[in-house]
Nucleic acid binder design. Sequence first.
DNA 1: AGACTTTTTGCTACCGGTAGCAAAGCATGC
DNA 2: GCATGCTTTGCTACCGGTAGCAAAAAGTCT
Lengths: 330, 330
Amino acid sequence: MSKRATAREVAEQAGVSKWTVIRAFTPGASIAESSRVKVMAVAEKLNYRPNLLARSLATNLTHQVAVLVDDFENPYKLSFLERLTLELQSEGLVAVLININEHFDHVHALLNADQRQLDAVIMCGTAFRTEMLQDVRLDGAAPIFVLARDSQIPGVPAINCDTTLAIKDLCRHLHGKGYRRPGFMAGPKTLSTALGRRRAFKAFWKAQGIAEMPELAAHHYSAASGAEAVRRYLNEVPPAGRIDVLLCENDVLAFGAMDVIRSEFGLKVPADIAVAGFDNTLFAAAPAYDLTTYEQPVEAMVKATVAMILGREPKKTVILPGRLVVRGSA
Amino acid sequence: MSKRATAREVAEQAGVSKWTVIRAFTPGASIAESSRVKVMAVAEKLNYRPNLLARSLATNLTHQVAVLVDDFENPYKLSFLERLTLELQSEGLVAVLININEHFDHVHALLNADQRQLDAVIMCGTAFRTEMLQDVRLDGAAPIFVLARDSQIPGVPAINCDTTLAIKDLCRHLHGKGYRRPGFMAGPKTLSTALGRRRAFKAFWKAQGIAEMPELAAHHYSAASGAEAVRRYLNEVPPAGRIDVLLCENDVLAFGAMDVIRSEFGLKVPADIAVAGFDNTLFAAAPAYDLTTYEQPVEAMVKATVAMILGREPKKTVILPGRLVVRGSA
DNA sequence: AGACTTTTTGCTACCGGTAGCAAAGCATGC
DNA sequence: GCATGCTTTGCTACCGGTAGCAAAAAGTCT
């Protein structure tokens, strides 16, 4: 009794061929209303539903999309996943969540996605190295999209927030507030996204006639790394020579930085050192942090990605503007 | 050129039958070393890899597991997802992430998972109502597991932290610290998990001769709801009659509560009102909150779940002990 | 009623694998 | 040289659908 009913079984009981059963379940198929009703009654009785696996094999479409994630320390990723799954599901697609790590890297994940015949691959991570992808031969494989990050790979479109504009907006705000000794906290150096943000940051302040810009390096995108970087800086630099504002590459780094600035050094944010972040994580709004930050247009980015996956929009890199969120920390 | 190579094509080029090609890719299959080498060379040349979709259709095993999530506001869910995907992937399984919401409820998700022939369903959510499942007829469908929550459904095992023990541990700690006017903040009332926690809380304090225990009701498991609940309470109750410690059903509620207690009412935590949570979210350790909380044994829970999915362990409800994490907030 | 059109139904071939049987290939013992 | 047993290979049937053609049934017109 435990086996699923198939179209053939329904057909037998309804006294039609299995193709008529299939047609009853295919919207727009040519079938007489009378036999549709008859088939549906039997299908209901036998609890029949079409096997999507078999359909996928025949149509070469799985309606599944791989989502590669490597950064589970950033709560921001959760809202991304929420929006993304929501948007995919509303289009009849489903997300296959793949955790990228030392044991299962991007190449593995792509080959796996390919073998599973997934319709598309969304790379939604931070730490991956695009060079790795050059070596993979994926002839008839699923199209790849890079979400919330730049893409260096030819033919692989990126869907990203306009970070140059974002950094400029943030810096303009900070400059307007009167800060003149800016510092920048960057994540892992090898990443191109980080490079772009840093470049924009330096360019802005140079244009304001400010050349000195300490750079605090965080090894990972985690609060602990942000904390460590700012701890090192504050231990090295005496109060007189310190920065008066710190722009962090993302909110999580900023949280770690604020924790150390306040708890370990007894300094005030923003009075002694102002702090700004990037992402507008859930916690950024909490009074405990009250972080000035920049919000990525998550919904628009996700919609653009899904539109490309569905072929509604041409596959090409899209850069969307975000929104400056001013709060008390800077 | 863009189509994927199939076993048949490899077979033709290698001068063998397609079954020999398949055997070359099947560990432990009976095949001569010489032909294995020959096949592999051609496969490499044509960039052939077996089509897992076709395999799934034939074997009735997809090696995919549905993970239903409905609570994307809790950063804790992210660490759960990380561990879960890691564990699944290490066993050759993959997680299909399904976002449960008003438009796509559990019944939809289960039917969808069934049609996609997924091997198992993990319900990893908070707000779903188990009653809904009673109506679904899933004859030969995938086994369902409830993770990090109780299960009321007969035949559906739960893998959960021992919340009764947890609440007792937490309360014992709070009592030991001298608190005598406890309050409890509960999430949505209809949920059985919430009921269990509340019951354990009341039982403990009653045993200590304390009968008065205000209950602050949060409508969702979100910081905003936690904030709102505590705001309402503090506005209603004059300082003299207030609780001296608040145990929240999860960390996120506790964060919201602390925000309001400190920022809106200028009270000190723990001096005026101590606060404790549940989950040990990433942010619980941050100096800004420094939250006393209880850590669920995520890794053990996830391992137990996957072991049952793989059939290594009998499918039955498992309750695992967690760990009290004492910090400054209580 | 017969010719013609349109709708409905059944069919073959296929998607790319798996399962397990039967035949072929090969080495060994007598 | 031949029976014997093991390894290797090829085969048919199948998993549960889709695609599109051909035949059958129903409807329309004169």
